[in-house]
Each structure stands twice: as structure tokens, then as C-alpha cells.
Design a protein around this nucleic acid. Structure first.
Lengths: 300, 300
DNA sequence: CGGTTTAATACAAAAATGGTATTAAAATCG
DNA sequence: CGATTTTAATACCATTTTTGTATTAAACCG
């Protein structure tokens, strides 16, 4: 017994006419005759009475089998559709990690929102984790995707793709004399007090600042960390010190604050989207592909 | 998507090893590889991860599809089994008519009982109807089988097969002088009074008796009809007259009664099993075949 | 690093499936 | 009632699909 035979059987049971059934199936009449004969042989009994040529009818066995055949076909169609949706990455479950800084800019939220628009049946679970933890969890298989900050290197088991190319910039009060310069050099920042955000165990900003100090030949003085970027910028505007913030923070346009690039030190700190290199999940593939289509999400 | 592919998929999902799955399926390993590849192509995504050669695993899609595939296969198996049982005549419904006289001897009951032993799932409905009515109902399709008395002819749409070859015989009190003869002739019965059974509208016995009278050149005198054969025979033993009873009534061995054949008049009155000639129902075929296997049922 | 295991691929043989043409049987029409 | 038409089955051939054997490529293991 094969599904193809059941499809022929169902159609013939509908039409009760070999030639018309063949037509509906895109076959010829003899093909239908043989498929039915084969099915009947495999079941060990006739399904149709064709003693009267002009009025094919279901036998008792055929009538009994018809709802069974329909059930099998419908079940098969449902299963096939489900598998296809799954293969297209439209159903399933995704564990996605994100760094807090990806949430501020709305990058994580807008990515997930875009994905769910296309694949509403996917169950997405979000977890806020710092970059190193995400890399661990990804490798362990407890995360499927991670939205985290660029690193100098990643485990070979992971692949990452750029999400947002953020440069860290220096935020200065517009009253600061250095604010007059179009761009700064590390050495210009000697003696400045720095206001840094601190989220969980994320130590990236601190590390960058220390690198900056080394390049400029000074030991940066650090204010107690604040909770978010708005506070960093407000503190800077209040003249409490300088800030180290992602370029995208400029979108806030806070009065009394200017952002300046550091010309001689690379302070790239983009967001990347990471996944297991060997991950064959269509959901992950689809998410990665979608993220690549429009590397910068709508939000500034 | 085809059932054969699902069978391969299920087995491979069990074994997670192409060669072993092939073995279980009675195929070779490349055949399994290709069947899976074909199924994956038709679904538009991978079902197995075989990056690591030594550990084939289900993908998320594969894991999702496995219960679906199992459901389809089980449904197909149930449907197939049901159709096969139906084709073998083991399920369904039979409308069977019988003449009252077939019930006395237990012919109808024993036939049905034998049939139900072999096909317990068949729903049998019995209806007591006289011969002409059964023939009507059979032709109309309201009966599937009929157990009735032989007729000189039947509609061509029907086929009948012998069930029990009953000759009608004459029952006489052993005190009757004719009881001394080993067999009678029609003429011997002139002047006898006859005791006949009368059931519903069955007029067969009366008609036979009249034929007998014609052959013997006398008008038979008829006693009021009685309800059953035992009463006929008891009346005969009491000397109330002669009886006309099926040969098989002799099995009752009633004291004081003898049964005698009528040599010169054919009084065959067998029971036959009738069905529509065109009936393709496996139940009917099976019943007819069973009845033929042992033409006389266990009962005398 | 070499041998072994395992899945995929290449190729030829076999099976099945489908199509065209024809036949047989029933239905329809004159 | 006979001729024509309709309809399903069959014969036959071409095509496609499936299988098996042999081989290859990759991963695993010592």
C-alpha cells in the first residue's frame, strides 16, 4: 500500500469514473485502472464494483476503507506541512541570549520582533547574559543564538556575523576645551575622570578604557559606575567627567554633551550575532539570514 | 512523500545507523541513504545530522516529524488491516433471511453460529420470512442471504446452493395398514386425512399435498393446521390422520409413527442458501463457501 | 599517522510506472 | 434487435525510479 495509490483511490471514490478520476489526477485511464488493481491486490479484495461499466460503485470493503484512506491522507498532509514549516524555520523554539547594551538600542528586541513577524509560530526565549557567558552557553548548546559584543577571537565552534558596527566614543561636556577639537587622541584624555556604565559582569567598557589609558600614557580615574547610558550622558552634561559610550548613544541628542572619536585608538565595539557553526537548525539559519538582509535594524 | 520513505525514516530514527536500518528493512545501505535524501528533499530540509559519521542524530525537524511519521504509519496500518479483514469477510454486516422450517431443524442457527465462530466481528441480522418474500428481498438488496425452500425456478439475478436435501415424507401411525409397506404410491393415500403444519404464509406444504392428491387421483382431506412438526407427529401417532413432513423430522424418533417415501411423486423440498449472483461482498462469498464445505450442518 | 568504520556517490541492472493503442464488455440509440 | 458509443481492462513499449554492487570520502580509533 502506498500513498499514491490512496490518492488515486480517494479520487476514484469521489468520481466513480476511471477516466474522470484520471483526468483530475493528471494521469491516463489505464494508469488509474492499474493503481486501483494494485491497491486491491495488496488489500486482498475489490474496492470497486465495475460489473456495470457505466456505474462504478464502492464495494462494502471500499466504503469501509474510504474513510480510512482519507484519514491516512489527511494525516500525511498535516505531517508533511508541519515538517515543511519546520524545515523552513517557521516552527520550533529558539534560545537567544543578548547583552544588556543590545537591549538599550533596541537591537535585540527589533531583531526578534522582525523574526516573529515572519515566523509567528516560533517560541523565542530571551536571556540577558554578558558576552563571555553567551559564548559558553552557545558552545554548550543551551543557547541557539547570541547577541553580544565583538571579541578579538571566538571559539572555532562558533560563527558570528556583524549586527551593528558601534564605535565607542568619548562623551564630553560642551564646556570642556577638548570639545572644540573635531577628534581626540588618547593623550588628550590624560587627567580626565571617567564615568562608565556597569551592567552585570560585563567588563568590556572598563577594559577599553584601560587600553585607552595605556595608549595615552595615563591611568584613567574612574567614577563610581552608573546604571545606564542616559545617566552616563547626564553626568557628563553635569560636568562630572567624561564618558565612554557607543556611537549610537549619540542618537539621544542630549543637550550639553558632545561625542568625539578617538583617532589613534581602535574602539570598535560592534554587536554581533553568534551561533554554532555546525547548527543545522532551519530556525537558526533563517534568523541569521534575516539579520544579514538588513544589517542595521530600523532603530538608530 | 511516500509511505515507503516514512518506513525507512522511522527505522533509521530508531537505529540512528544507516547500515543497521538497511538491514532491518531488508535493503542495502545506499538505498536507505537515497530514500532519506528523497524524503528530505520532498520536505525541504534535513531530518538527520550526519556531520559526525559515527553518530547520526535527528535534527529538530526530524524530531518534530518523527511522531508525525509514526502516526501516519500506524494509521495506515490500521486502515490496511481493517480493509484486509473486510476483504476476507471478517467484518461488516449480513442480513440473512430464513424460513421457519429452517429454524426447527436448527439449520439456520447452526450455519450462523459456524460463521460467527470464524468471523466474530460480523454483525448478523436474522429475519424470519417465507420463501417468496426472501427471494423478493434478496433481489431488492434488503437481504444478503436467504435460507429458504427449493423452488422450481429462481430469478436469474439470484444464485442458490443446496443446504439440506430434505424429501417430504408421509407420516403414518404404525397401526395404519399402509405402514407395513416399505414405500407408498400416491394412490395409496386416497381417503386419508392429512395434518399439515402452517407457518406464516408458507404455503409449500399445502401445494405439495395438492400435487400428491392429483397424482393419486383423490382430493386430500385436510385437518386444521397445527403449529409445529412435533404436533403433526403427535397427532399422527394419536391416529388423527397422516402427516406430510420433511424427512429430517424422522430424527425425532416419535413412538408410534413411521415415515414412508412416496415412490411415484417427487416431493423434494430441500433447504437452499440463496444470494444475489452479482454480490461481490466477501462476507457473502465467505458464507456461501462455508456452507458448501459441509453441506449438512452438524444437526440432524 | 594508518587502519577501520560509516555514509555518500557512480554506475549498471531490475522493477515500476506511465503512456499509446487495442480489446472486451456494457450501455445507448436507431 | 443490431450498430454505435462508452467505458474499463489489457498488451506493449518507453521512461523513470529503485535497487544493488563497487567505490569514494570522511570521520573515528588506536
Amino acid at each position: 500500500m502506498e500513498l499514491a495509490q490512496l490518492r488515486v483511490f480517494e479520487t476514484l471514490a469521489d468520481e466513480l469514473h476511471f477516466a474522470r478520476a484520471a483526468d483530475r489526477l493528471g494521469l491516463t485511464q489505464p494508469a488509474v485502472s492499474r493503481q486501483i488493481a494494485a491497491l486491491e491486490a495488496s488489500l486482498g479484495g475489490k474496492l470497486f464494483d465495475r460489473a456495470k461499466r457505466s456505474q462504478v460503485t464502492l464495494t462494502a470493503t471500499g466504503a469501509l476503507f474510504l474513510p480510512e484512506a482519507r484519514a491516512i491522507l489527511r494525516q500525511a498532509e498535516r505531517g508533511e506541512a508541519l515538517a515543511k514549516r519546520s524545515a523552513r524555520g517557521e516552527v520550533g523554539r529558539l534560545e537567544i541570549g543578548y547583552v544588556a547594551s543590545a537591549a538599550w538600542g533596541g537591537v535585540a528586541a527589533s531583531l526578534v520582533r522582525r523574526f516573529l513577524t515572519r515566523a509567528p509560530k516560533v517560541e523565542v526565549h530571551l536571556q540577558e547574559l554578558e558576552t563571555p557567558r553567551q559564548i559558553e552557553e552557545l558552545a554548550a548548546g543551551r543557547l541557539d543564538l547570541g547577541i553580544f559584543r565583538t571579541r578579538p577571537a571566538y571559539p572555532t565552534a562558533l560563527k558570528v556575523q556583524p549586527l551593528q558596527q558601534d564605535t565607542l566614543q568619548i562623551a564630553l561636556p560642551d564646556t570642556d576645551p577638548r570639545a572644540a577639537q573635531p577628534e581626540l587622541h588618547a593623550a588628550d584624555l590624560a587627567g580626565a575622570r571617567f564615568i562608565l556604565p556597569h551592567f552585570g559582569e560585563e567588563a568590556g567598557f572598563l577594559a577599553r578604557l584601560q587600553a585607552l589609558g595605556e595608549a595615552g600614557g595615563f591611568a584613567p580615574e574612574i567614577q563610581p559606575p552608573v546604571r545606564d547610558f542616559l545617566t552616563v550622558l547626564t553626568s557628563v552634561a553635569a560636568g562630572l567627567g567624561a564618558g565612554l559610550v557607543p556611537e549610537s548613544a549619540g542618537a539621544l541628542h542630549l543637550q550639553g554633551v558632545v561625542l568625539r572619536r578617538v583617532a589613534d585608538v581602535a574602539l570598535n565595539s560592534g554587536l554581533v550575532l553568534g551561533a554554532r557553526r555546525a547548527d543545522s537548525s532551519p530556525l537558526v539559519r533563517r534568523f541569521l539570514q534575516m539579520a544579514q538582509e538588513r544589517p542595521k535594524s530600523g532603530h538608530g
